[in-house]
């Protein structure tokens, strides 16, 4: 194999391997944030749960409730999460399925944040119906 071809092959393999590594790190990051969100809700620590909401989602919760995030989140009565069943990550967006809930997340500078929770699947191309989501 000529030198340029070998260099190109090395680049492709390196890009593929780094992509796989990045993908595993993203899955871990999204799952971890989802679990911390569920744990905060289960513990009644709504302030911590609010910290894990994406900015637009938090704004929407406060706007809808016309009050602070914590009490508004408690009022929503999101379902208990349960054990994780799988996570799908594409770029900076993720879907975490647990036994009791489905949560959407997005990656920000300070980590993965919940964009929607309390989501129920509809037919194939219909968006999930979520009790908590951004505008």
């Amino acid at each position: 194999m000529s030198t340029p071809l070998r260099a190109a092959a090395v680049l492709v393999v390196a890009a593929f391997l780094s992509g796989c590594g990045a993908s595993a790190a993203r899955e871990d990051g999204a799952s971890s944030s989802g679990r911390r969100f569920a744990a905060a809700l289960a513990a009644g620590d709504y302030r911590a749960a609010c910290e894990l909401l994406a900015p637009e989602t938090r704004d929407e919760v406060e706007e809808d409730a016309k009050g602070p995030c914590g009490p508004a989140l408690r009022e929503l009565g999101l379902p208990p999460s349960g054990p994780a069943r799988g996570v799908d990550v594409y770029g900076n967006d993720a879907l975490l399925r647990t036994a009791g809930d489905t949560v959407f997340l997005s990656r920000f500078d300070d980590g993965w944040k919940v964009t929607a929770a309390g989501c129920v699947e509809q037919s194939t191309d219909e968006p999930y119906r979520c009790s908590l989501k951004g505008g």
């Binding site: 799908d88 770029g91 879907l95 929607a116 989501c119 194939t124 999930y128």
Partner: peptide, 15 residues
Amino acid sequence: VAAYNGQRLRQLQAP
């Protein structure tokens, strides 16, 4: 499929 699924997740659709 990766780009489309990213868009679907942002629209709260299953991948």
